[in-house]
Design a protein around this nucleic acid. Structure first.
Length: 878
RNA sequence: GAUCCUUUAGCUCAGUUGGUUUAGAGCGCUUGCUUGACAGGCAAGAGGUCGGCGGUUCAAAUCCGCCAAGGAUCACCA
């Protein structure tokens, strides 16, 4: 990039400064005497790649951490990844399958080797990608949920909860993923509306020449039926109470049971009962002591117990059995029907409800502090409305199925002694042996008599400890790091994982440290396309983030993502967003070029207009950064960025720079130059959290810096008292200037043509100090007060002051009158609304004094303005 | 089905405990401006009966009720 280039080139700059930051270890944090500011990254899937959601989420975290660092806090952002049991195992299984290897033909150890190979090869790419975004994580702290220390923490917690009696093992109806061949939690099931069929099938009654017809969406489960259920009050079936029916095709005799769970109105009012494959049927089965046949294999094909169609897929069987039922004369009819089908979030196959032995965590009691501390705002949610969602889930929480029938993950530390119900829980096999010998009072037991549970723990069972375990606070609760960094300050994450993560981390925080894991939770929205569709691979509507960074610069992308991203609200992405960011980068770059483009002359005196403008900007800046702090503190980051953007673009570039700019090729005075640079530097500082690269680049160009110095550890400007009066005065000048510009435009007068400006000020309200600024920006050759209203002049009124620009023949009197009349109209309308209030007795009686005073002042101002306008119109008419 | 949220300019959103001008911003749009930091720019401008109806109040985008549309979460009947 050359000094004279009119365009900012982000690419080289970004590589250079990220290198510099790493070299000088500027992201590194170690405990010291400063106040800590901690963020733990929501760990992405180790095999994942960066998508737009990550960009948004991590930009937010980087903004918060960079600001804290510049405020002098000891900022620590801990990066890392999670092992994503199901997703990663699926990928490894697929890879093995491609090589012709079946998972079950290799040992657990061999499989784990393959999985680690895969992880080392493909894992952590996402962290490298975050560096391109400018993420200022302390990379030396990078953690992985399967690291030794984190794994030990998970096992320790399992044992602890087991010993407290909160973890139990039991047969339950679980959500079975037939592709991953594991149970998944309720939260991992997505329901979708689906067009399906309702099949009406008749079952013969034993010893009667009669049939009972049931309706089902899943005819393949008929093979597992062990009863037909009717409502006790259903008159259609009263005569069948106590009878047996024959299951078609397999001719099994099962009872007709009676239960008021039945909805008489639905279908035929008769329900087939399949206790092994439906949650409600399971309950009926328990209540009525029914048999249970598991008609599916783990992979979703029919099992031996089905008696028919063994090893054929469940959806294939649905078609076959429909035909067979038809042939056998049992199919009555088929209707179209819409119902909701659960799909596995990970593999997108339909969930099969299945009875199986799983490990559960009792939730009822351990959620209590987590509910309380969110509701009393010990933990602050932004936006607040997510507290409702949180409460709803927490108050209806069900026990958490924490076991997964997988190998990739933390193997459950339970050791079976003999059979399946005799086991001990211990952190290793040696301790397990000791416990087993004690438990069975049998010192002859050896390690060979023990067999560890095959299953692993849910990935979230390790990530819920993340804010604690990354500082090793589970294994060593009193270590310096956990005591210094915990609790953390902010968690920034998508609202879609409020239950998976946020809620469970809060639970873990209180359970294991008796303290909240983070003070604030910032929920981001979803990134969608312009039609509000979610970004997805299938639609191909998601841009490649790295490509965007390449094209618009990381700073540009960060700007684009933040500008339109209200907390919790969805972000509708379009390329115009990073484009705006890139344009702004260019603006900053060129503003810098302007400030440095002139020779500095110590001899020339500072012009008055420059001094006035600089003084004004000083006040404006202080006013704005006070607002900025407020916006940060309430997590209104989009608004914070907008404020900085406007401050730089409008106030600094368009007003200040235009005023202090010396004439073409003339030098600039020393005083102005110095102050400009001071303000420029401060602007770079407040811009830095949002756009770290360009600000670092220009901060270094601005002055010679020592090796290792960086804007990212400079002191963030603090709000100072400011004078609103100076700001308000300047606003009047802006108003006048805008009016003059409008005159030029309407009359088509070139900016090169100079003209005279007069004002008539009976009320002495015009602050003539600002004359020099107006002259500077408006090409005025003479600006003076007059008592005689000039002929052939255009008019405007600002506040109570009338202004005249004599334009001689350029004046179109009729148009002038028309414009003034419109203005008069508005002023009169306004005055009326004020008078209406003031003439209302009850208003005058009830409203507070200051409100009435304001209204009275509005009245006076409006009347003065109307008077001025009326006079002008009168003059033009005469 | 239950609970909750949203509805303000063409689009995305601000708008504090009701009262500083008959509502603001960014983008988009319209018009004008090429020697001057930047056309990836500058300047000026148009555009809204604050979803609808009713109520409370001296005063409602703001509080309350009903209705309508959209969305979210949870649950789920075969």
């Amino acid at each position: 990039m050359t000094e004279t280039s009119t365009k900012y080139n982000s690419k080289n700059t970004e590589i250079k400064w990220y290198q510099y930051w790493l070299e000088h270890k500027l992201f590194k944090s170690v405990p010291d005497t400063r106040e800590p500011f901690t963020i733990v990254i929501p760990p992405p899937n180790v095999t994942g790649v960066l998508h737009m959601g990550h960009i948004l989420n991590n930009t937010i975290q980087d903004i918060l951490i960079r600001r804290a660092r510049m405020q002098g806090k000891n900022a620590c952002w801990v990066p890392g990844t999670d092992h994503a049991s199901i997703a990663t195992e699926a990928k490894v299984v697929n890879k093995l399958a491609e090589e012709g290897i079946d998972k079950h033909s290799v040992s657990r150890e061999e499989f784990m080797d393959h999985a680690w190979d895969w992880t080392h090869k493909h894992g952590g790419i996402i962290l490298e990608q975050l560096k391109k975004l400018g993420a200022s994580c302390d990379w030396d702290r990078t953690k992985f949920t399967l690291d030794k220390d984190l794994s030990e923490s998970v096992i320790k917690v399992f044992i602890d909860l087991y010993n407290k009696g909160l973890i139990y093992r039991g047969i339950r109806m679980v959500n079975w993923d037939t592709k991953a061949k594991t149970a998944v939690s309720d939260e991992e099931v997505e329901y979708k509306d689906e067009k399906s069929k309702l099949y009406y099938v008749k079952y013969k009654i034993v010893d009667m020449n009669e049939y009972i017809t049931i309706a089902t969406t899943r005819p393949e489960t008929i093979l597992g039926d062990t009863a037909v259920c009717v409502h006790p009050d259903d008159s259609r079936y009263k005569h069948l109470h106590g009878k047996q029916v024959i299951i078609p095709l397999i001719n099994r005799e099962v009872p007709i049971i009676i239960d008021d769970y039945i909805d008489i109105e639905f279908g035929t009012g008769a329900l087939k009962v399949t206790p092994a494959h439906d949650e409600n049927d399971y309950r009926l089965g328990e209540k009525h002591n029914l048999q249970s046949f598991n008609v599916f294999n783990d992979n979703g094909t029919m099992s031996k117990e089905a008696l028919l169609y063994e090893n054929i897929d469940r959806f294939e069987v649905r078609k076959i059995i429909t035909d067979d039922l038809d042939k056998a004369g049992n199919l009555v009819k088929i209707e179209d029907y819409t119902n909701r089908v659960g799909y596995s979030q990970r593999t997108q196959v339909p969930i099969e409800p299945k009875l199986s032995m799983q490990w559960f965590l009792k939730m009822q009691d351990i959620v209590k502090p987590a509910i309380e501390k969110v509701n009393d705002e010990t933990i602050n949610f932004s936006p607040k409305r997510f507290v409702n969602t949180y409460n709803h889930w927490m108050e209806n929480i069900r026990d958490w199925n924490i076991s997964r029938q997988l190998w990739w993950g933390h193997q459950i530390p339970a050791y079976y002694i003999s059979g399946t119900n005799d086991f001990v829980v211990a952190e290793n096999i040696e301790t397990a042996l000791k416990l087993a010998r004690e438990k069975n009072k049998n010192n002859n037991l050896t390690i060979n008599d023990l067999k560890q549970d095959e299953d692993v723990l849910d990935t979230w069972f390790s990530s819920w400890l993340w804010p604690i375990s990354v500082f090793d606070g589970i294994r060593f609760p009193e270590n310096e790091e956990i005591k210094y960094y915990y609790p953390t300050n902010v968690l920034a994450t998508g609202h879609d994982i409020i239950f998976f993560w946020v809620a469970r981390m809060i639970i873990a925080g209180y359970e294991f440290r008796n303290e909240f894991p983070f003070k604030n939770v910032y929920f981001t929205g979803m990134v969608r396309d312009e039609q509000r569709r979610k970004m997805s691979k299938q639609l191909g509507n998601s841009p490649d983030p790295l490509h965007l960074i390449d094209e618009y610069g990381a700073d540009g992308v960060r700007f684009g993502m933040m500008l339109c991203s209200p907390a919790g609200g969805d972000l509708l992405y379009s390329d115009s967003l990073p484009e705006q960011g890139r344009n702004f980068l260019n603006k900053i770059w060129n503003a810098y070029r302007l400030t440095q483009s002139r020779e500095v002359d110590d001899e020339i005196k500072q012009p008055e207009h420059s001094k006035i403008a600089l003084d004004w900007f000083n006040e404006k800046f202080n006013e704005q950064i006070a607002k900025l702090d407020e916006l940060y503190d309430t997590f209104k980051l989009s608004e914070a960025l907008m404020l900085v953007y406007k401050l730089f673009k409008d106030e600094f570039s368009s007003w200040l720079l235009e005023i202090v700019k010396p004439d073409y090729q003339k030098p600039i005075d020393r005083k102005t130059f110095t102050r400009l640079n001071e303000y420029f530097e401060q602007l770079l500082q407040i811009l830095h959290p949002f756009m770290p690269f360009i600000t670092e680049e220009l901060w270094h160009q601005l002055r010679k810096r020592n090796a290792g110095e960086s804007i990212m550890i400079s002191n963030m400007p603090k709000p100072k008292p400011f004078h609103s009066k100076i700001i308000n005065n300047f606003d009047v000048a802006k108003d006048i200037i805008t009016q003059i510009r409008t005159v030029r435009k309407e009359k088509n007068i070139s900016y090169k043509t100079k003209f005279k400006l007069f004002y008539s000020d009976n009320t002495n309200s015009f602050n003539s100090e600002l004359q020099s600024v107006i002259i500077r920006l408006c090409g005025i050759e003479n600006f003076s007060k007059t008592d005689i209203k000039p002929e052939g002049a255009t008019h405007f009124v600002v506040k109570k002051t009338e202004f005249f620009i004599p334009l001689g023949t350029l004046i179109d009197t009729d148009a002038e009158i028309k414009r003034l009349k419109e203005e008069l109209n508005y002023a009169q309308g306004f005055l009326n609304s004020v008078l209406k209030k003031l003439s209302n007795e009850r208003f005058v009686k009830n409203a507070p004094a200051d409100v009435i005073e304001k209204e009275t002042m509005k009245q006076a101002d409006a009347e003065a303005k109307i008077k001025a306008l009326e006079e002008q119109i009168l003059n033009l008419n005469s």
